[in-house]
Design a binder for these strands. Structure first.
Lengths: 212, 212
DNA sequence: CAACGTCTTGACCATTTGGTCAGGATAGCA
DNA sequence: TGCTATCCTGACCAAATGGTCAAGACGTTG
């Protein structure tokens, strides 16, 4: 096995590692500073690399931003896995809320970068929103409608249900500092996220006529 | 009555008008570009003034941002008016949701500026969050708890209830482009906001054991 | 081991941008 | 009418920042 084919050694490994390091640093900086506020110098410093080296891997700041965003979009499409006709509604929704809440706790930077992108009109992901994401949501909305038609769920607009679920879960990542401040804490702990998940689940499930 | 005391004429009126125009332009630009992405040149252009004139009224970009933010914080503290012990829970909550949703529809820029500020760690409003806002929310949380104690409401963590309500209503201002894209529309119309308000109200009220 | 392609980096550049300044215009007032 | 305070603005500047470049280091391969 040549080094070129073994990802653990050689230049291929160097590239892989550096790209990963840069993406991670970039996600953090874009999350806390926004696209315009982030500087390539800061990202490079956080990645522990000289700036020109960063530009060697990603020619422009915009290209780096796109790469970070692409990573995040991939995450997005997964979480809905539990929503399928065969599943028990209460179970599926509980799982979905839990998945989204976990994502907010574990990948807050990703959520923030995405939120920031949306806030500014989604210049870089408009295509995704109206394309892959719309198709996915339309699809899952049909599942909800099927549940309603089967009398398993109180009538509700499925799309708006999703908007509420996204908002209620992502708010704990995006606006964590507000929530922490109002709760009188310095930072949110896993206990807060548990409580949040329970509250959202209880509200939504009972709101849909299901047993929490 | 001297001109100086009559706000409709004279230099005082000029100042008032220019300040208002600048604040409005700034709110729009800060909302769509963020603090770092906004340029004083663009704000000035939008306000129809030369840049140095803008700096005449607001010495620095940061000062202008603070002024915009202060306007927004004032709005924030009002919406909760309907939450009081004497009120009927279902009625009060419906009103609150409606007020927040209206605010999302009518003042989307304000919501976005605030969201942007929170996303970036609230450097400029941390004091407000842990101060006036925390006190207000703690106060309103006691009202919710009183309702629960009186058996008018299913048990729920009052703070997290508020977080969910904020998220569910503000998402229609902050992330409008995502919602529009998923709904297959160019822009959200008042019909969408109506439907959103109904959905949130129905979910939350039933979720709290109330009649929607 | 030599030659080649990939990676690394200090120094540098052009542009953007927040902010300044000096002097002119204008409103209010004696 | 003339004096003062406020308002307006074209021209300008220093700092920050995205991006470049040329030269050197390093791993890989024939």
């Amino acid at each position: 096995m040549s080094a070129a084919k073994n990802p653990k050694n050689g230049k291929e490994a160097i590239r892989r590692e550096n790209v990963a390091t840069i993406l991670q640093a970039a996600e953090a900086v874009f999350a806390t500073k926004g696209f315009s506020g982030a500087t390539t110098a800061e990202i490079a410093a956080r990645a522990g690399l000289p700036k020109p080296n960063l530009h060697y891997y990603f020619r422009t700041k915009a290209a780096l931003y796109r790469a970070v965003l692409d990573d995040i979009l991939a995450l997005w499409l997964d979480a809905t896995a539990s929503i399928m006709v065969e599943a028990e509604p209460a179970d599926a929704l509980r799982r979905y809320i839990d998945a989204k809440m976990t994502y907010s706790r574990k990948r807050p930077f990703a959520s923030k970068v995405f939120a920031n992108e949306l806030l500014h009109g989604a210049p870089a992901v408009k295509g995704f929103l109206g394309g892959a994401m719309k198709r996915l949501v339309d699809d899952k909305a049909k599942v909800i409608e099927a549940w309603i038609a089967a009398g398993k769920l109180a009538p509700v607009d499925p799309h708006h249900l999703f908007f509420v679920l996204w908002a209620a879960t992502q708010t704990y990542a995006d606006f964590d500092c507000q929530i922490a401040a109002v709760l009188g804490k310095k930072k949110l702990g896993s206990g807060d996220f548990d409580r949040a998940g329970e509250t959202v689940s209880a509200l939504v499930l009972r709101g849909l006529g299901l047993k929490p």
